[in-house]
Structure formats: structure tokens, C-alpha cells
């Protein structure tokens, strides 16, 4: 490989550094030697910036938001009242409107995920196991391309199609939202399943056939268990993306509301950050439980 050859040349120029810069070269050398000897220092340096950004700043922001969820706002001045209270969570769990919205969001996320699995699995299977290698390459591109098309553009496309004088003409509402979300996240389901099926050796399918299993049984006992982590990996996307969405609902949902809308409205119009934070904790809790549950399947390595 070329770079290896170049390496030697780079070395000789480094060794014959111009006499004017001995200190800088020495410093660099010392640093390099120190880094070479101390793996711990190398690791600390590598981790410093990412951890400062994601571990301190981002997690810090999330933690601060969580703390805010236990505060309240003064109903007259709208100022934050920094005293501990469970009131926001109590409201979320006991007020009917919010319970309904939370359950509806969960239902939408589950429906979207199931629809995507049902549509994506046969597509991915046909791509991975029936198409020629050349066709496979093109099919992957065909599935990938819409991912690069803007989220809004796709939601907008469905708004145009679903409008009462559009191509489909279903009108807006919850079914329209589910259809649009399922459409938006479909490639996120196809690609992991396709990758999972591609890793599944054809010889296993042949072996199942040789041992007398027909299609459905091969699917149930061989294909599905081995590609399950891939399906779960896809579902992490479809589930999480659906739970937090409030844009598509606004575009095609008519007057229906999901968790995201409640959070958004409480920040914007009502200016009630503590309550918004408490509502936003619902999808986070659901996702954390979900992620913890699926970590065992090894699905997260497929992301």
C-alpha cells in the first residue's frame, strides 16, 4: 500500500528537520514518545473532547431538563418556581387528556413499527436472497435514495396526496399520520433487515430445506430468530422516531395530537417548561426501557 512507502519518506524528512526549529521538533518528539509510552494518556486525550461534549454538556442538559420537570411555574408571573414537586408527573399520569395522548402516541409508534416490519421484511428478503449481486447493489441504492430526500419533503408529499382532491384523497387524521410515519421510516427498517439477511448464509436455508422444512417452517425456526436482532435494530429507529414526532402530525394529522405536540405547545404557547419536561420524559422512559431490553439481543451493534 502506498501510505506505507510514504511513511519512510516522512520519517527521513522528520529526522532531517531544519536546524532553526530544534525546540519545536523536540517538543513534538517528546509528546509523541510520551503518547507512545502511555496508552492511558492517549485514551484520555481521545476521550476528552467527545466526553466533554456528549457526556458533560449533552447529558448535563438532559439532567437539567429532568430536574426542571420537578419544578413548577408561577401561574401569575410565569416565572420558574424552583421547589421540588411531583405535580407535573401526577398531572401527566392522572389527567385524562395526557394519558390518552401518551397511549395514542405509543399506539402510533407500535403501529408504525409493525407496518414497517411487515412491508420491509419481504422486500429485504427479496433483495438479499432473490436478486443477483448486481441488482442488489441497485436495489440498495433505490432504498437509500429516499433517505436523503428531506423529511419535510416526504411529509409534504403525503399531505398533497392525502388532501381531499389529491391522488389518494383520504383526508387528514390519525390513519394519515400512521401512513405517513410508516412511509418516512420504512428505509430505516429495510436496511438493517437487509444487512441481517445478507449475513445469513444461504447454506443454512438449504440445510433447513434438506432436513425437510418448508418455507414457513424455515422462516420460523431459522430466518426469523437469526434476523431478529436486525429487526430490533430497525425498530429502534421506527419506534423512537415515531414517539418524538410532532411535525408529521401537524402536517397530515388534522387535529390529532401526539406527545410531541403537547411538549411543543407547553413550551411555545403556554411557556410551561417544567410540565413540558415532564411530558417529554414519557418517550425517554419508554425508549430507555426499550433500549435496555434490546441491548441483550446485540441489536445495538447493528445500528
Amino acid at each position: 500500500m502506498d501510505p506505507g512507502l510514504d511513511g519512510d519518506q516522512g520519517l527521513s524528512t522528520a529526522a532531517a528537520s531544519p536546524p532553526g526549529t530544534p525546540r519545536r521538533a523536540g517538543l513534538r518528539r517528546g509528546l509523541a514518545a510520551g503518547l507512545h509510552r502511555h496508552a492511558g494518556a492517549r485514551l484520555a486525550l481521545l476521550l476528552s473532547a467527545p466526553l466533554a461534549w456528549l457526556g458533560v454538556a449533552y447529558l448535563g442538559a438532559l439532567a437539567a431538563l429532568l430536574v426542571t420537570a420537578f419544578w413548577s411555574t408561577d401561574s401569575f408571573t410565569g416565572e420558574l418556581v424552583r421547589t421540588f414537586t411531583w405535580a407535573n408527573f401526577q398531572d401527566v399520569l392522572t389527567v385524562d387528556v395526557y394519558r390518552t395522548v401518551a397511549l395514542r402516541s405509543l399506539g402510533v409508534a407500535v403501529a408504525v413499527t409493525l407496518i414497517d416490519v411487515v412491508i420491509a421484511f419481504p422486500m429485504a428478503f427479496a433483495m438479499a436472497k432473490l436478486a443477483s449481486p448486481r441488482a442488489q447493489r441497485w436495489l440498495v441504492i433505490a432504498v437509500l435514495t429516499p433517505l436523503w430526500a428531506s423529511y419535510l419533503v416526504k411529509a409534504y408529499a403525503w399531505r398533497v396526496m392525502l388532501s381531499s382532491d389529491g391522488l389518494l384523497g383520504w383526508g387528514y387524521g390519525l390513519p394519515a399520520t400512521i401512513a405517513t410515519l410508516a412511509y418516512l421510516w420504512l428505509p430505516y427498517m429495510i436496511l438493517p433487515i437487509y444487512a441481517g439477511l445478507e449475513r445469513l448464509p444461504n447454506s443454512l436455508l438449504d440445510a433447513a430445506g434438506d432436513l425437510g422444512a418448508r418455507g414457513p417452517r424455515t422462516f420460523r425456526t431459522v430466518v426469523w430468530p437469526l434476523t431478529f436482532p436486525a429487526v430490533v435494530a430497525g425498530s429502534v429507529f421506527t419506534f423512537s422516531l415515531s414517539l418524538g414526532d410532532y411535525i408529521a402530525v401537524k402536517i397530515v394529522g388534522g387535529r390529532s395530537q401526539l406527545i410531541g405536540n403537547v411538549v411543543y405547545d407547553n413550551i411555545g404557547a403556554a411557556g410551561n417548561l417544567p410540565f413540558a419536561a415532564a411530558v417529554a420524559a414519557i418517550p425517554v422512559l419508554i425508549m430507555l426501557v426499550y433500549l435496555a431490553a434490546v441491548r441483550r439481543t446485540g441489536a445495538l451493534d447493528n445500528l
Binding site: Y58, A64, L65, A280
Partner: peptide, 13 residues
Amino acid sequence: ALPGIVTGIALNN
């Protein structure tokens, strides 16, 4: 992995 709105309001705050 977290819903965008959570990251959004956490960063906003």
C-alpha cells in the same frame, strides 16, 4: 436514539 424533541428542549433550556 432519543426523540428529537427531547434533545431540542434540553439544549434550548
